[in-house]
Design a protein around this nucleic acid. Structure first.
Length: 788
DNA sequence: TTAGGGTTAG
């Protein structure tokens, strides 16, 4: 009796001895040695010991050992099943994990418990397809574990991982009891899915509802406030952390560092960073990213050096935070050396790193370097495709952007970012049929609730000439931000409807949305293109005095444009003299344009002299000045200006016009003979010219540009591309059909006049988008009121 | 009937 007691006592202690030994094991060799000891002492069939061993092996990434141990046990219990299901899940083997779960359900009499579901569902989040998790969620409800807090938290987290925010919210709302972890899971999911404002609401509900929060809660909510630049709310959390003693928690401190640096409170951020006794990698990353996003590149680099000196390893976030994506100007060299560092350390192969490099090179107009990096990156993510496509779009290489988009479609399903940039490409190109196709795609992918996507759609329809379609979409939008309003206001400006733009601006103010600099610019722009001088002046006054907005160079330029076009050139000049900022090329350019309309040669000379100093590469100004001299019959001067262009090899951008017939684009250049239907087109043009002459049309080229060199004369005899496009559209479309054409340059006076006549003779509505705006021609009248 | 498994965070 005594003996048995003693032996069982020894056995007990020995097993505990092994169990505690296993708990302490930190390396695989350590663990294998312990395993050998376990076998030598005959504990290889002891469930508790084997389970702990299985667990340890999987934690040390030796999942095969775990599996072998499991297989060595003839009748594993639920506990051991659970440990291995978790092991597979955490070792990137979600399929094995779920197979084991299925095996458990089908071939044993064991019943899955909360652990089984927790582990199996976390395995399910490792798949691309969400169906496994949905199924497991259903199973857990059937097994009566639907309202278990532990399982519930994991299910909520699962839905957030698949961006199924509404489903996550539904599960969260349906939980009869909520603990701190569940609330935290909800907040973190919202933050990770960029639902920052919602996360603030949930956080408030949690605190107000009396649920105990912990340091995790605060650390989770802080990034949301950082993103929203909610300094006040962030400081509230800071106070809360101080009050309850979480202020030295490293997670909370790091969150505060991010918050203060995103809110431009760099000194506070740096101070807090200094308070962290042993900053880890993530702290360093937060501080580095904080400096970078405030354009404090030097400080950013110095913290980076500190990090390297600390011996802590650098990860992809470090590099992403260090790449000056938001303000790359003048940082080509830094970017280059950073890239060399990343190539050496192998970090460059990380998708987020190469994506950040692609982005920054695109911003630096180094599009070829970006493309090279993109092509070389072994693992392309949706984000890297998006970066490259957006890069092309932003650099005006719209066709390349579109062809890359088509290529991407075979590998990835587009997300809101993708469709937003591709819509911008469509808008730039005037590619309405592609835009409509993308609209269809948006519907099929359920991206219609995204405000960015919808705003881009409004912009696309407006810029492709369908202002009615744009307005319809705009009116249907339940949520509108300042960008949405700006898009619609500038759309009316673009189409020459200044009054509607003003009406919308008033509506916007009533809706409570704060106008931005872009809003004022859009309204002023609309006034300028509609000749609304008084209204423009009122808006400018309102902007400065009622709204306290400091006008930027663009706003001044727009005012100069408004005054100048209206013939108030002296007032425009006065306005320039009173500007608080240095007048740039845009301001003088606007004045020069006005001088062109009103044939003010002397003032034109003043403006252009300033322009040649400020922007010597821009051909447009030379052409304008030369035209002014010609109009003033000062032909020698006109010729000498053109000679400057020639001497400097500043080439004029060749004009071209696009017209879509049955969704096929046709591009015409000046005097183009290359179109297969060229003969018919020119015949149609002859017929039209005859009728136009009968109706009183006079060609304007002779009067405006009298003294031209032989070469240019010939060019002028050639027909401008917009006329060819219109003639072709007349042949190809049924009588009465609206014609839409897109020109890359500003439409010339002669073509503008001709189009008016054509619209009357043929009884067609003709919509022309030129480099600046839209012209709607109907019955011989243009919507711009000859004011463009 | 005891051991052995746990979700959220900067």
């Amino acid at each position: 009796m005594i003996c048995r007691n003693i032996s069982s006592c020894y056995a007990q202690r020995d097993r505990n001895f092994f169990l505690s030994l296993l708990s302490k094991a930190t390396s695989l060799s350590h663990l294998t040695q312990t395993h050998a000891q376990i076998i030598l002492n005959g504990y290889q069939n002891d469930l508790a010991t084997v389970t702990k061993l299985t667990h340890k092996f999987s934690d040390l990434k030796a999942i095969r050992h775990s599996r072998d141990l499991f297989l060595s046990i003839p009748k594993p219990d639920l506990f051991l099943f659970n440990v291995l299901i978790r092991g597979f899940a955490s070792n990137a083997s979600p399929l094995s994990s779920l197979s084991l779960y299925t095996h458990l359900r089908k071939n044993t009499s064991l019943n899955p418990d909360k652990f089984t579901y927790a582990f199996a569902i976390s395995a399910a989040s490792g798949f691309k397809d969400e169906k496994y998790g949905l199924l497991l969620h259903a199973h857990s409800i059937i097994d009566g574990l639907g309202s278990n807090l532990y399982v519930g938290s994991i299910i909520v987290d699962f839905y957030f991982k698949f961006s199924r925010v509404e489903l996550a919210q539904k599960v969260f709302d349906g939980m009869p009891e909520k603990d701190t972890v569940l609330w935290n899971t909800m907040i973190s999911g919202l933050v990770r899915n960029c639902y920052y404002a919602d996360s603030m609401r949930i956080f408030r509900d949690m605190v107000m509802g009396g649920t105990a929060f912990d340091s995790t809660t605060l650390a989770t909510e802080l990034p949301a406030l950082a993103e929203l630049q909610e300094l006040k709310a962030g400081m509230g959390i800071h106070c809360l952390a101080l009050k309850v003693g979480f202020h030295s928690d490293v997670h909370v401190l790091t969150g505060l560092v991010s918050l203060y640096s995103k809110c431009r409170e760099l000194e506070t951020a740096r101070l807090l960073f200094g308070h962290i006794t042993q900053p880890d990698l993530i702290c360093y990353n937060a501080m580095i990213a904080g400096y970078t996003c405030n354009n404090e590149t030097v400080s950013s680099v110095s913290i980076f050096r500190e990090l390297l000196a600390s011996g802590e390893k650098v990860n992809s976030s470090t590099i992403v935070g260090l790449i000056p994506v938001s303000s790359p100007f003048g940082h080509l060299q830094l970017t280059g050396s950073l890239q060399t560092f990343c190539v050496k350390s192998g970090i460059v192969s990380h998708p987020s790193v190469s994506t950040a490099f692609v982005t920054v090179y695109c911003r630096l107009n180094e599009i070829e370097l970006a493309r090279q990096l993109f092509d070389e990156s072994s693992e392309k993510t949706l984000a890297s495709w998006n970066a490259m496509i957006a890069g092309y779009t932003q650099n005006g290489l719209t066709e390349t952007a579109i062809s890359l988009f088509r290529e991407m479609m075979s590998e990835f399903s587009p997300n809101p970012v993708t469709v937003t940039s591709i819509l911008s490409a469509c808008a730039q190109l005037g590619a309405i049929s592609l835009g409509k196709w993308v609209h269809g795609l948006i519907k099929s992918k359920n991206l219609e609730s995204n405000i960015y996507v919808l705003t881009a759609l409004v912009d696309m329809y407006a810029k492709c000439g369908s202002i009615v379609e744009a307005r319809k979409l705009f009116d249907l939008m339940t949520e509108k931000n300042v960008v949405t309003w700006n898009a619609m206001i500038s759309a009316y400006g673009l189409h020459g409807d200044g009054h509607e733009a003003l009406k919308l601006f008033t509506e916007m103010l009533h809706s409570g949305i704060q106008p931005s600099g872009v809003t004022f610019l859009s309204v002023l722009y609309a006034c300028s293109h509609a000749g609304l001088v008084r209204e423009g002046e009122e808006i400018f006054h309102y902007m400065v005095h009622n709204h306290g907005f400091e006008p930027l160079a663009e706003h001044y330029a727009c005012m100069v444009d408004i005054l100048g076009r209206a013939g108030k050139l002296e007032k425009a000049l006065e306005f320039i003299k009173e500007m608080l900022v240095e007048p740039g090329p845009a301001v003088w350019g606007a004045l020069l344009g006005a001088c062109m309309i009103h044939k003010e040669t002397e003032l034109a000379r003043v403006a252009s002299e300033r322009l040649f100093e400020l922007d010597p590469e821009n051909t447009g100004y030379y052409v304008l000045l030369s035209n002014i001299y010609s109009a003033d019959r000062n032909f020698p001067k006109a010729a000498s200006v053109r000679q400057v262009v020639k001497n400097r090899n500043l080439a004029k951008t060749p004009g071209c016009t696009l017209v879509e017939i049955d969704e096929t684009p046709h591009v015409f250049t000046c005097g183009d003979q290359s179109h297969p239907r060229a003969t018919e087109i020119y015949r149609m043009l002859d017929k039209l010219t005859g009728k136009m002459m009968e109706a009183g049309f006079q060609t304007e080229t002779v009067t405006v540009l009298h003294d031209v060199e032989e070469e240019e004369k010939e060019l002028m005899v050639k027909v401008h591309s917009e006329k060819l496009a219109i003639a072709f559209a007349l042949i190809e479309t049924a009588p009465g059909t609206e014609i839409r054409i897109f020109k890359n340059l500003r439409v010339c006076l002669d073509c503008h006049n001709a189009t008016k006549f054509i619209s009357k003779i043929t009884e067609r509505v003709i919509i022309v988008r030129d480099a600046n705006r839209f012209h709607h021609f109907k019955d011989g009248v243009c919507s711009c009121g000859d004011y463009w």
